[in-house]
Design a protein around this nucleic acid. Sequence first.
RNA 1: GCCUGAGUGGCGGAAUAGGUAGACGCACAGGACUUAAAAUCCUGCGAGAUUCAACCCUCGUGUCGGUUCAAGUCCGACCUUAGGCACCA
Length: 800
Amino acid sequence: MYNFRKIEEKWQNYWKEHETFKAEDDFSKKKFYGLVEFPYPSGSGMHVGHIKAYSGLEVIARKRRMEGYNVLFPIGFDAFGLPTENYAIKTNIHPRIVTDNNIKNFTNQLKRVGFSFDYERVIDTTDENYYKWTQWIFLKLFEHGLAFRDKTLVNYCPSCKVVLSNEDSQGGKCDICHSDVIQKEKDVWYLRITEYAEKLLEGLKDVDYLPKIKLQQENWIGKSTGAFVNFEIEGINDKLKIYTTRPDTLFGVTFMVIAPEHPLIDKNKDIIENMDEIYKYREVASKKTEFERIELVKDKTGVLIKGIKAINPVNGKSVPIYTSDYVMMGYGTGAIMAVPAHDGRDYDFAKKFNIDIIPVIKNPSDDTLPYVGDGVMINSDFLDGINNKKDAIKKMIEFLKEKGIGEAATQYKMKDWAFNRQRYWGEPIPIVHCKHCGNVAVPYEELPLKLPKIDNFAPGTDGESPLAKIDSFVNCKCPKCGRDAKRETDTMPQWAGSSWYYLRYIDPHNDKELASMDKLKYWLPVDWYNGGMEHVTRHVIYSRFWHHFLYDIGVVPTKEPYSKRTAQGLILGPDGDKMSKSKGNVVDPNEVVDVYGADVLRTYVLFMGDYALDCPWNDNAIKGVSRFLDKVYNLKDKLNDKEGYTKELEVIINKTIKKVSEDYESMKYNTGISELMKLVNSYMDINSITKDDYMILIKLLHPVAPHITEELNEILGNTKLVENSSWPKYDDSKVVDDVIVIAVQVNGKVRDTIKVRTDENKEVVENEAMSANNVKKHLEGKEIVKVIVVPNKIVNIVVK
RNA sequence: GCCUGAGUGGCGGAAUAGGUAGACGCACAGGACUUAAAAUCCUGCGAGAUUCAACCCUCGUGUCGGUUCAAGUCCGACCUUAGGCACCA
């Protein structure tokens, strides 16, 4: 085995000394900005999953350097967050110290693997020079009315007196003390991301994201089109506004449903006859946890509101109004028109409460209801006989508009972004609450608003942040009127720092602005962003939102932050399960580097399977990769420049360059590496190889296994790094063999193979095929119906 | 329930403008080298039938149908599995 320890240490030191991977702000050069998701520096150190995630773009970054690009390939740390805070609570060690140690540990590990990051540009979201600008962006959002305070219901544990996330309160029980979680009303900060829903959706058209990534974002944004329709309330001067995506089915409305919290109820509590019953229902519904709501999907509950009725504006029919928790206040108008014949949920409800069901679209196959498909309108007056989707929707919307009872409308599922946590280890929200002036922004020149040093990180009582206990932090003067005021004590969520970090890499030490426009203009957009599928909705959408906003206020020069986004698959444990400490199937990258070296680890994580798919770790398979690199190294003993190579080898080499180049670009690293293995096998089969041929292998392998290739390059007497050399080119005329083997089928079954010249004319090929030994046998006594010759591919003889 | 992927040897996985299924690697078996082992090198390796042996033959890419000279690949219906969304009107 080659001495990887010595070689890898040597080259890592060399790269560090010579700043080999430093990105230059030289605007005359063509640039490539490759981005990987920066890690959360957890106490348990790096995971092999990190190695896989970074190795993908590492290959591209190194290839780009060889192609002459000025490459920015940065790394940093997303270091605010709960695990560190919880660890601090347990051990009473300050999160700052914990974070610094973890970052040190991560950095050492990253360097041991030899990633070509520019360590001059490392950022840490918990650094006050960084979060100063996170706070700055928040203030800009606040200034533009996109950050606001509103009441919401949060999961609250009355025993621990803390606000819990959904994850920490599963099944309605507090994760820590197992008592019942209640829903508590609280004032929280929101970012108005819904304002950008359309722009975020629209922007997807201009970027190159994997189709499944675009789809997930589209679903997350959840645009739907339909109409608002106003229903009169019988006898009183009031209206019920509903949202529907199916205005075509208006004639099929047999009842209305409103959310339990709908204001119509309280507004009319004097005429409603069964308020007691409704109050009771409302209370039960509000206590239902998320979990129960999902479980009880099929069992519809609700209460008929007695005393008020709605009038269907298209036919004047009087219909009952129910309240049910299957309609939610947070979407549309919190009220729906129910068409049980053509909606599954309305149908279930109607069956349970014995309500009329009137079909308005003919089910083309049978009369089964509910029928949610398209078809011809029936029982619908002026819509009868036309197709619902093609014509009825349009016609109905025109009708609604003309009569002034409704209009076309668009809705989004996406909700505003709840932007605060009651925790210590996060960016302080730079707002002061003043009795006289309300919520007042901390002046820009006072940023960063530093996180005060405290000793007790446990959450405050009554669901408050630990910061609420620090009087010297809380008590302050109102920046506007100068009177006594109190600071906001909540901190920002972990998503904040990661929403703009790619901008800071571009100009990490700037203390005047978050990044200079000149540099942003040169480096943006990120050319290629790779990361996990789990961040495709939240993180990527949040950062796109911030970027769009920053574009609108003239801080960044592009609309979209990332022009391309890909995602890698997980590395599963050797048992095929997701790696987790509790299962004991976690592979430590350090141990692999100790035994096999960094180059083997890097090569293996890329070779183990399709980069985009999940794949189990296999302790044995890594040996094959180790053998491969040994062979590459040992080939140096076969060097002999005198001997010229054969035509056959020339084709193999050209084909390899082509295939490897293409495979790297499409992240098919596994087949790219297998191609290199084949090339090595070809080299092994001959007596000696030339330096030129060896260099091709070294260069193609370099992005994957850079230490061994730099070493071999030096052994070959080159003074220029492989990293600074050029990517091999192939000759298009030399990627095809002169003679190829093609299969001959009889009735679709392969019976023999023949050797023919490439692009040989059809007649010759046909004759060859007919006279192949085993083919003749199958043709005996049969009548030839047809002969199909596909050039350079196959011959198929059809017989009877 | 809806939306996405994925189902191919003992294992990880190759091969899709339809054209020799199983590249490459692992594991395994036999051989060479060695006092021996490790390492390395060579050979074999989907299943079955047949044969002294080879050729040859049959079957085979989750299931069932279909289109085609030809289907892992296209179409229809389903099954399993992973992930995402979830009473979104």
